[in-house]
Simulated assay, not measured.
Amino acid sequence: MNTSELNQYLRSIELKRDRIESFYEYPYCLEAIKGMGRLSFHPKVTFFVGENGSGKSTILEAIATAYGFNPEGGTINFNFSTNDTHSELYENIKLVKGIKKPKDGFFLRAESFYNLATNIEELNREVPGLFNSYGGKSLHKQSHGESFFSVFMNRFGGNGIYILDEPEAALSPARQLSMIARMHQLLEQNSQFIIATHSPILMAYPNSLIYEIKDGIKSVNYKETEHYSITKAFLTNPEKMLKILIEENDC
């Protein structure tokens, strides 16, 4: 084992298969989880990509919750709960951590960001000035994309582990490019990212590992992903792609 593996905050996860009563019940019936073995993480960036419903967000949520983060997002110190819908998967995975502990951390997910912003609003009433850590103003007084981007740009301080669930859902392509630049700065400051995404822009980050969920989980190169192939085919010849799609729909 090399030094970088020891120093990374999260080295791997493994499903505790002996604790699963049935692989016919959710979430264990998902192909990605049913066949899950030991998954190692890149010391810098690990991506989970796949179709809607493939299980990538379920896996990411379990990783974050098992690590100690609030299932709806925030830091390890956040304990609000608006809707207890997270699965029990976090109880049945084993996290293998490195010897180095992060000084910072955040679980940021598009799905429950409104709930997170509301909790930050409430906390700011108790601790005036808390908004300074999130860009200086209420997240509810910004657009969804602006507030989401503000958390990422201002609250993430480096030397941390950051778990992001579909961050591109709130961001324009230009903001996704800015996110890559900021992510690189944080990685230079000894950070680690684990990201579930559909974005071919984000997953292009070079120093990373991509797990594609498709009839199981396997590591792939960027240009082997379905997201890259479909996006490239469309942008290369959008007229042809649209013509095929519209004609098929008219049949």
Rank of each mutant, 00 (worst) to 15 (best):
N70W: 05
E121P: 03
S87K: 04
H184Q: 12
R125A: 12
V220M: 02
I20P: 05
N249L: 13
H198L: 06
K16D: 13
G136V: 08
L6M: 03
H86K: 08
T225D: 10
F23E: 04
G37Y: 12
A32T: 09
K100P: 01
E224S: 05
C29K: 08
S81V: 11
I59V: 05
T46Y: 00
S143W: 11
T65M: 03
G105H: 08
G37H: 11
S229F: 10
K34G: 10
P71W: 05
K240T: 12
K243V: 03
H144N: 15
I76T: 12
S133V: 10
N237C: 02
S87W: 01
V127F: 12
N221G: 15
L60G: 07
E51Y: 14
K16N: 15
E31R: 14
I99V: 15
N132V: 01
E31P: 03
E188M: 07
T85M: 10
T75H: 05
I213L: 13
Y205C: 07
E248G: 15
L6S: 14
E72F: 06
N52F: 02
K16S: 01
M153D: 13
F152K: 02
G68N: 03
K16C: 12
E14Q: 11
L164I: 06
A64C: 08
S57P: 06
I194N: 06
G50S: 09
P167I: 09
T75K: 10
S191D: 10
F149N: 02
N83W: 09
L89N: 01
F47V: 04
S87Y: 04
E168T: 10
K97I: 06
L130V: 00
L15D: 03
